[in-house]
Design a binder for these strands. Structure first.
Length: 371
DNA sequence: GATGCGTGGCA
DNA sequence: TTGCCAAGCAT
């Protein structure tokens, strides 16, 4: 933890910036389920490309804490890429339920099938090759290339954008600043341990160089950080103003048959909650409907439940009224009758789990097993 | 370049 | 309570 005195600025007190960051990483790397520790890596242990790929897809826009149990569950169910490729899509969607951004799950499965099939079970080892895989964009391709294959790729995620924009005091707003951030990052990427360097920059952003109240005094780069020197670290990177979220309204219909089954539907494969299961409902509109019942999946003695279900998506908030009915004989209705006690096996997104909890609190208890 | 796409944690 | 935002990608 040697502190670089003013006299040593520009003198490279602890080696190159990358070297100093790696030194910090050797001492502070977090122990994560998909990570090979710096020590084990130094001893020659290599991360499994399948595990690196799986974790990176899950980590897109998703926190480490949230991903943990899902990663363990996927790896236990499908230890190798060919196992995942052989799974049913419905089973994969069910296992992904709750993690969000469900197109990731579809692309994950498509990618597994591509790798296990036409690629002979071997992941591409270059950024370019990885970029051609479904669900793999610039960040993920670079991350896999660096972490799994020791390619000196510039791995730039939200954390790294923050770290680099501060290090060089880049005040251009995002996303226009990305090109400059990437150029700056490239000057830092070392030829040795590029994978650890990538993980170190992300760890730095996730721990010390946080969006608010960065812990500059503990940072291995504090003495070479332009933003810290100018006292503007917390203001960077500059982001565009946020758009406001409208609230949409709708209704959901919980219909049971008296024999422990409930009517569910599967949403279309693309778009919001694509390919996921749902409790049948109305469309979701900003205007509140006067009467929901004409949109019910069947005629039944519908009873409106008190309260509403609220859920916030990326670009709008949703408020649902829940109706409940039980019928002795199943009416003609689009969808599938599913045992109420096996809903965990279904691909129910979080908003629909909230609907279940509202309509039948006992049934919702089965969801508590995970996490 | 802009937009659509989930969820949970935390200040 | 409310807003912020986290290891982005596809279109």
């Amino acid at each position: 933890m040697a502190r670089a005195g003013l006299a040593s600025v520009g003198q490279d007190p602890g080696g190159s910036p990358a070297g100093r960051l790696l030194d910090w990483y050797d001492r502070h790397a977090r122990d994560l389920p998909w990570r090979v520790s710096p020590l084990a890596r130094a001893r020659g242990r290599r991360p499994d490309p399948y595990g690196v790929w799986l974790s990176e897809i899950m980590l897109q826009q998703t926190t480490v804490k949230t991903v943990g149990p899902y990663f363990e569950d996927f790896l236990a169910r499908w230890p190798r890429v060919k196992d995942l490729a052989a799974a049913d899509t419905a089973e994969v969607m069910s296992a992904w339920a709750g993690l969000g951004y469900y197109s990731r799950a579809r692309n994950l499965h498509a990618c597994a099938r591509m790798v296990a099939g036409e690629l002979g079970g071997i992941f591409p080892q270059t950024e370019e090759g990885l970029l051609a895989l479904p669900g793999v964009g610039p960040y993920t391709a670079a991350a896999i290339a660096a972490i799994a294959f020791d390619e000196p790729a510039a791995v730039m995620d939200g954390n790294v954008e923050r770290v680099i924009s501060r290090l060089f005091a880049i005040t251009t707003p995002l996303p226009a600043a990305k090109a400059e951030i990437r150029d700056r990052l490239r000057t830092l990427v070392p030829d040795t341990r590029p994978g650890d360097f990538a993980q170190a920059t992300m760890d730095l952003g996730a721990t010390l160089c946080s969006p608010k109240k960065p812990a500059c005094s503990l940072c291995p780069w504090t003495d070479i950080c332009a933003a810290a020197a100018q006292g503007i670290a917390e203001t960077l990177p500059v982001k565009p103003p946020k758009k406001e979220k409208p609230t949409r309204h709708g209704a959901a219909f919980w219909l049971t048959d008296g024999k422990g089954h409930v009517l569910l539907r599967t949403r279309p494969p693309k778009g919001l909650l694509g390919g996921m299961d749902e409790v049948p409902g109305t469309e979701w509109r900003e205007q509140k409907a006067v009467d929901h019942l004409p949109h019910a999946p069947a005629e039944a003695p519908w009873e409106v439940l008190p309260g509403t279900v609220r859920h916030v998506f990326t670009h709008f908030a949703l408020e649902l009224v829940v109706y409940r009915a039980e019928v002795a004989d199943r009416p003609q209705a689009e969808g599938e009758w599913v045992p109420v006690d096996s809903l965990t096996a279904r691909a129910l997104p979080t908003v629909m789990r909230k609907v279940v909890a509202h309509a039948d609190p006992d049934a919702a208890k089965q969801f508590r097993r995970r996490k």
